[in-house]
Write a protein that binds this DNA or RNA. Structure first.
Lengths: 206, 206
DNA sequence: CGTTATTGTATACGCACCGTTTTCTATGGT
DNA sequence: ACCATAGAAAACGGTGCGTATACAATAACG
């Protein structure tokens, strides 16, 4: 395998990246692979090749392919800002769920799909419960609080389970249908979430 | 590898099963493997060994490991009978969802887990949407009809999405938490499903 | 009955990919 | 200048899917 001349067949004679720089290059490669071929198509070798490094440097930092995807997911996910304050319960809910759906359409969604698949495959227990927790209830509660402050008719005695309903249904839709369209979000908000959390208008219903 | 004597090292000199008999033996082996080691731990070789046959005989009938699990799932799943008629909306819902949860706790649940995982892993499209469809809405609608016939206050103008809510949430719970406890079903029925589908009592609420 | 087509049994193989090991070499610290 | 650390490259072992090959038993057919 002695290359007489031509293309740069080796990275050995090159300024060598270390530490944070290399780490970032690896995560960038993971993100690109997730976007292009998805978690299923992403192999440790393809990530290493793309990052211009070797598998060993990856395994020195993360113990498995799954851990790599989780790390990428954490870095990719950014919690959306709630809309500026002249807003409404419905607008807040739509913005929140739409932002999640948009993230799911990109590499973060591929990572999520892979994490779920792996958590189902491996006998390894519900690391999935950890990953998904938090994303769901916290932001939802904030939206409800904001609506209460605006004196919108949000119930005060909400059952704990309700906090998980929106994100659970969104996730389920994503997993089963591979994507979440705007129509679904609208129905979810108008036909499920709002009816569940608002007090019935006292006189307005015929 | 010439075995001089002793144990029966080969199936060559034995009444040979064919057709339906062999097919059943294979499915039985799949079911047993699903129950014992789950879909992830079930290999084609382990199924073949357990069924006392070879991989070729399996691949002659089913094209892949996934297809095998789907077949087993179809044969395992039995739709539960609704409870006898002096019943109630709540009782019907509890019985229905409890029956599903019970199935999920056995080999059918393992098959389901595997099918979901595979459908997420393979670029193969949403065969998952097919598998899950039907299980959800149809039985739910029958329960609602029965309740309406009993003059329970079930709304008539239910949004289409509502038909999928109970089974979607149950499935999501199963996938994320690996099992569905009775508590969850109770909350699902009392805090989500019934509030969504019943008309608010006209005078009873303070 | 004997011949032939089909199908089960047994085994070995190619392939992909994970995670590891080994070897060599560039870089940073002192 | 030296040495410890860590990156690059390549090869390996292991597992499991799906296939190919060789052979034997059974069914179907004359």
């Amino acid at each position: 395998m002695t290359t007489p001349d031509g293309e740069p067949e080796s990275f050995r004679n090159r300024p060598r990246r270390r530490g944070a720089a290399l780490e970032e290059a690896i995560i960038d490669a993971v993100t690109a692979e997730l976007a292009e071929v998805g978690y299923a198509g992403m192999t440790m070798e393809s990530v290493a090749r793309r990052a211009g490094t070797g598998k060993v440097s990856i395994y020195r930092r993360w113990p498995s392919r799954l851990a790599l995807a989780i790390e990428a997911a954490y870095r990719l996910i950014e919690l959306p800002e709630p809309p500026p304050e002249p807003s409404s319960l419905r607008a807040d809910l739509m913005a929140w769920l739409t932002a999640i759906a948009r993230q799911m359409a990109g590499p973060a969604g591929e990572a999520f799909r892979g994490i779920v698949a792996e958590s189902l495959t491996q006998a390894g227990q519900g690391r999935l419960a950890d990953v998904t927790r938090g994303t769901g209830s916290e932001q939802f509660r904030q939206i409800l609080d904001r609506a209460r402050r605006r004196s919108e008719p949000v119930r005060d005695d909400l059952a704990p389970l309700l906090g998980q309903v929106p994100s659970s249904l969104l996730q389920h839709r994503f997993l089963v249908h591979h994507e979440v369209d705007q129509d679904y979000i609208e129905q979810l908000v108008d036909d499920v979430v709002i009816p569940l959390i608002t007090r019935p208008h006292p006189p307005t219903l015929a």
